[in-house]
Design a protein around this nucleic acid. Structure first.
Length: 268
DNA sequence: CGAGCATGGTGAC
DNA sequence: TCACCCTGCTCGA
């Protein structure tokens, strides 16, 4: 679930449900009980996101800093008895948000939020993002572009799905070292992320396949991948490339499974 | 029922 | 580069 779009969507939903309201904060699981008690029955101001980091601001310059990691989830809906291990619940009479399995959940100050945000590269989902900041580091790096895209200090919010898909959509060789990537390619990548990721916020899923490449348009039977989105290469190892038909390849890159089409992706 | 896996990140060597 | 953390789901015995 969690790449940048998930956290930005959560920030919007949490703001709508709890912004400006006095909320109950609890820790059914108990692992966050002390901090939850400090926030309980105080006002939540709003939720904001930077990259994959979520910040819930509470009255008195207190911020709940959440990072979902690989397996975390934060589910918002009508109040129901907690299921499973709920680290934190934020709730009103009308709605409850249950946090499970986060990599990070901590009560921090405004200054600490600023410190955290300063460590992150530009986020394609933020209007104030400056892609040149990322380019400055990319064009001097020797690591492959597929690794640089995952480095949250270079740019933030992109995860394993968006990295594979944005490289495919722009026909870029994932192994191209940053310092051999031409600037036009970087501009294409950034512009594409700025187009794709806000769509992900709206739909709450990752869809990257252009209309002309959908199974219908290509005369193939419809399909739906198990991660909840239509994609070109992510987790399609060994299957036919939707554009050229050659086998989608996979390998471990930067510790994660990379997927790409060696025939379509040759640009630098 | 256990093993393995997942859209992530950290800290130790 | 590796072990490890957090949780839930799926797959094969």
């Amino acid at each position: 679930m969690p790449e940048g779009h998930t956290l930005h969507r959560l920030a919007l939903d949490l703001t709508q449900a709890f912004g400006g309201r006095v909320v109950s904060v609890s820790s059914p699981q108990g692992r966050f009980a002390e901090s939850a008690a400090q926030l309980d029955k105080t006002q939540m101001i709003e939720g904001t996101a930077h990259g994959k980091h979520l910040f819930c601001e509470f009255d008195g310059d207190r911020f709940l800093h959440i990072h979902l990691g690989l397996i975390g989830s934060f589910d918002l809906g009508p109040p129901q008895p907690p299921r499973g291990l709920v680290r934190v619940r934020i709730a009103t009479e009308q709605a409850a948000a249950d946090l499970r399995g986060p990599q990070l959940c901590a009560l921090i100050t405004r200054a600490e939020v600023a410190t955290q945000v300063a460590m992150l590269g530009p986020d394609p989902l933020r209007a104030d993002a400056d892609p040149d900041l990322a380019w400055h580091r990319i064009h001097r790096a020797t690591r492959p572009i597929a690794a640089l895209l995952m480095d949250q200090t270079i740019l933030s919010g992109v995860g394993n799905v968006y990295r594979a898909e944005v490289l495919f959509r722009n026909r870029i060789n994932p192994h191209r070292p940053g310092n051999k990537l031409i600037r036009r390619s970087w501009r294409r990548i950034w512009a594409d992320l700025v187009e794709l990721m806000p769509q992900g916020v709206v739909t709450n899923r990752i869809d990257t396949v252009r209309p002309e490449h959908t199974p219908q348009a290509m005369g193939r039977p419809p399909r739906e991948d198990d991660h909840g989105g239509e994609v070109y290469v992510y987790r399609r190892a060994g299957m036919a490339c939707l554009v050229c038909g050659s086998k989608v390849r996979t390998e471990l890159l930067a510790g994660r499974n990379l997927f790409w089409c060696a025939r379509c992706q040759r640009r630098g």
